[in-house]
Nucleic acid binder design. Structure first.
Lengths: 155, 155
DNA sequence: TATATTTGTATCGCAAACGATTTAATCTTT
DNA sequence: AAAGATTAAATCGTTTGCGATACAAATATA
């Protein structure tokens, strides 16, 4: 039996371009985020805090699909930059509640122009607006399926 | 002026699902790659070597869009597992030529079934084959554009 | 030929990711 | 209430990614 060798070609994989796109996107954000003095994963945490206000480490982790072993040091860095506070919950001392500082809240204004700037850089390319929309749709489905296969399936 | 606040909502971003999809894909490969005793980025390097045979660190880096500071330690790990060899080029001593060992070549057979298994797990989902194909097309365009904006534009 | 620049790789340090384990608090069950 | 199970964070060790930097070989230029 001849195994289908072309299956292993880089261009035919779905995994590699996903991996590349993710890294390149992070790079695209870098210049803007440097100005705000935060990294890309830190930006994601801030997005969650701006949108949902104060919440536990666990809740942040669920929204970003990250574990506490990733979040704890990351949150400590954001805390040392004074963008947020970490406090044990009064009602359940196992939980740490993360809340925004004034400075963290203020950062939202500065960040608000970033998404438009990033998306704007696709304007004069071979990718149409409609294409992006359907792409995003499939991407969301993909994430849902992959998430289910992973953590979702382990109950 | 009221900045468009919903721009910063997690669901409306393109960047986060890309980031999540990439991580979840890596996780999906993990069980298969564990059997082969390699990590996901190491798998990508092996893909490149299986497809293009022996080549310099630089060439591997160009194909995977990775720098030598990432590749060198990674290649050393693959070398210590005896999947590949690293040798200075005779004609240009600045280059290190990476080539597969017997063991590295043999691994290809074991890996050949992975892509089908991964793609197979999408069969009974809400994502159709046709959708995946058009998704992959846009993804390739996206990578090309992002790549151009980054390293491509700095000449 | 001597010097400067470019190129290819490697080193270092920091920030993620993540599996495995640990610690402390809470909930269950008796 | 005490014992055991569960849960939330944190800690530890390994592997990536990448900016900054170093260094040696190769090439270009004076």
């Amino acid at each position: 039996m001849d195994k289908n060798i072309t299956d292993l070609y880089l261009e035919n994989q779905l995994c590699f371009p996903l991996y590349a796109a993710s890294r390149l996107t992070t790079k695209a954000y870098a210049p803007y985020l440097n100005n705000l003095n935060i990294t890309y994963p830190q930006y994601l945490v801030m997005l969650v805090l701006w949108q949902y206000k104060e919440q536990s480490v666990n809740e942040i982790g669920e929204r970003l699909m990250l574990e506490s072993n990733t979040l704890t040091p990351l949150l400590k860095r954001l805390e040392s930059k004074e963008f947020l506070l970490r406090n044990r919950s009064k009602t359940d001392e196992r939980s740490v509640i993360v809340s925004l500082t004034e400075k963290g809240n203020a950062l939202k204004e500065e960040a608000s122009s970033i998404p438009t700037k990033i998306m704007g850089s696709f304007k004069d390319t071979s990718i149409s607006e409609a294409e992006i929309i359907s792409f995003k749709e499939t991407l969301h489905k993909l994430v849902a399926v992959l998430d289910q296969k992973n953590s979702g399936g382990k109950i």
